[in-house]
Each structure stands twice: as C-alpha cells, then as structure tokens.
C-alpha cells in the first residue's frame, strides 16, 4: 500500500503574532536573562502519521488534544508551523499551484456540526453542485443530473434539491455535507467528529453510509472522534493523541485487546459499555492540562498511576513494542 498522506514531524503552534511592544518586552527580558512568558499553544507537537491508500485511520483523544488541528493539516486547510506534509510521496510545499489545487480537491472534510457547515442561504443543489461546476467536473448541460446522482449516492431524495438547509433534519444535513464532499471526487475524506452531533439511530445510518462509500469508491478516511466505540467499529488503525503528541498507535484489534500506554488503558476503562451492567466508576485522576503550559517530560505523568521519576523530565519516544504497534512510554524500556 502506498502512502496517501504522510505527516513527518508536523507541529502546529498558535500564538499571538508579537507586535512591537511584545518584541521589546521580550528583548528586555532577554537582557536581564529571564525568559518572557510564553503564551503559545502547541496544538500539535512533532506528530508522524501515515495514511495508506484505502485505509481508515481513527484519531482519538479528549477535547483540546489537537485532533481537529491534525485533521485540518492533513486536509491541507491549515499549514503546519514545522515539519513536512507529503501528498502521495511529494512534499506539498514543492507542488506547483495547479498540483496543489488538485491535491486539495482530492482531500475533502466532513465537519462536526451539520447546522454550521452548510450555508443557510444557498439551495441544496448549489451547495452540492457549485464546487464541481467551478472545477470543471460537470459536462456541459449535465448539472442537474450530476447533482441528482450525488444526492442519491448520499441517500437523499433528489426531489429536495431546491430546498434550503433549514428544511432538513440533522442526519439529512450531514448527508448533504457528505454529498458536497463527494461531488468533487475525492480520494480521502477527513471526518472531524462527523457523527458526534447525531442521535444513535441516525449515527448508525451515517456510519453505514461511510462504510458503503468506502467499498463503492475505494475511499481513504481519516476519522477523528472522541467516541472509542465508533472508532473501534470502523477504523483499521487507531492513533491516540494526548496534548498534541501521539502516545500510542496500533491496528484496531491490537489496541483494543492489548493497549500499552497507561493513558490508552485508562481511556478504554472509562468507556461506558452496555454489557456488564451496573459498575462503579472511578475515573483518571485530574483533568487534561492546558496546552499553553503542558507538563514537562511525558505530558501524561501528573495523571499517570505508574509515573516514574524520569517521566517528569524526559520525553518518551514513540517506539515499536510489537509489529505495527508503537507506544510512547518509559515503562517499556
């Protein structure tokens, strides 16, 4: 399998652009030998990720761990602060303007909130048909048929194409978002919490649609979710993020059967399951720390039940512990 998208040591930092006052303050602090207060958010910190053609990669993490930022970088709508993004083996900053546009078209995103991601003032046919028309994917005179085919594929009745988004339910809007993404014939879909806002019965419909489309069109997915149950169901490989770093990565069955990192193990223990009946909840101690001022060493050490002394000052590297199973924990050495 060839790599569709490969991220190498990708970081993304968010912070205020220093104005003249901030630069002067920083210089003054430097003059007296003190570091100035750093307010940069390290949303993603040196992440390596490979998505092979036809694969479904699940990214799991708590809110604020950088999973959406990772998705946006993979989709090419956010540039990394450091590191390289390879599109089918080629560095995207080296591509020509035309190739960049083609690469972006081949990666489409499905967003979490189907109420905010559709323009309320456009008809469905415009929402779905505008991009392929602009990019010249529709043969002359074939607009109507093209839009009908896209809507039908996403499980919507083409008779509704003259309607506006507010006339649809949440599940139908998510289907419109899917039809819009597929209309430009992408190879890879980045789904950022695409089913989180939907009811259970509708969630199942959309997940089934994703799986059908994968079979029908040979799509590749980067599936971002906080719901381990959904990721377990559809992903081939799972990446666990904690505060901007990958803590563990393995095949789906492997990670659910033999989780290695204490964070993954705790996360799996917390997932409520229907089977098993009444249980006593315990919970990982503490909260997810702020990414502005993350803990030193291993980010998880203040909450980790097995933390060693070195965990507080030494960053663990992501190392292979079994074939295809990588984990970043000092306990493995």
């Amino acid at each position: 399998m060839s790599a569709m998208i490969e991220l190498r040591g990708v970081s993304r930092h968010f912070g205020p652009t220093p104005d003249i006052a901030a630069r002067l303050t920083a210089r003054a602090f430097a003059a007296i030998g003190k570091p100035a207060r750093d307010t940069t958010v390290r949303a993603i910190d040196a992440v390596d990720l490979t998505i092979a053609r036809g694969e479904v990669v699940g990214v799991v993490g708590e809110s604020g761990c950088g999973k959406s930022t990772l998705g946006r970088i993979a989709a090419g709508i956010l540039a990394p602060t450091a590191g390289t993004v390879l599109w089918q083996g080629r560095d995207i900053v080296m591509l020509s303007a035309g190739e960049t546009r083609a690469a972006r078209l081949r990666t489409q995103m499905i967003f979490q909130n189907p109420y905010a991601s559709l323009n309320p003032r456009l008809r469905i046919e415009t929402i779905v048909g505008e991009a392929p028309r602009v990019h010249g994917l529709i043969p002359p005179g074939g607009f109507s048929d093209y839009v009908d085919a896209q809507l039908r594929r996403a499980g919507l009745d083409p008779a509704y194409k003259r309607r506006y988004p507010h006339q649809f339910s949440g599940g139908q809007r998510q289907r419109i978002g899917i039809a819009r993404a597929l209309a430009v014939r992408p190879d890879i879909l980045v789904c950022d919490e695409a089913v989180a806002a939907l009811d259970v019965s509708i969630q199942a419909q959309i997940i089934n649609l994703f799986m059908d489309l994968r079979e029908e069109l040979g799509l590749t997915y980067l599936f971002i979710s906080h719901d381990l149950g959904i990721v377990e169901h559809i992903a081939d490989r799972v990446v666990i993020l904690y505060l901007g770093r990958v803590v563990e990565e393995a095949g789906c069955e492997e990670i659910f059967a033999r989780a290695n990192h204490p964070y993954t193990r705790a996360l799996l223990a917390e997932v409520p399951r229907i089977a098993g009946g009444k249980k006593a909840f315990a919970g990982i101690k503490g909260e997810i720390p702020s990414p502005i001022d993350p803990p030193s060493g291993c980010h998880f050490h203040p909450r980790c039940p097995h933390a060693l002394r070195r965990c507080a000052f030494e960053i663990p590297t992501l190392r292979e512990i079994a074939p295809g199973h990588r984990s970043a924990c000092h306990l493995n050495s």
Binding site: E62, L228, L267, V271, P272, F281, G283, E287, I288
Partner: peptide, 13 residues
C-alpha cells in the same frame, strides 16, 4: 470527555 464523565458519574453514584 469520557475521563471527566467517569469522574462525574463516580461522584454522583
């Protein structure tokens, strides 16, 4: 989040 949810469920129980 699930880890925070588990903490809240623990307190409520």
């Amino acid at each position: 989040d699930v880890t925070i949810q588990a903490q809240i469920l623990f307190e409520v129980q």
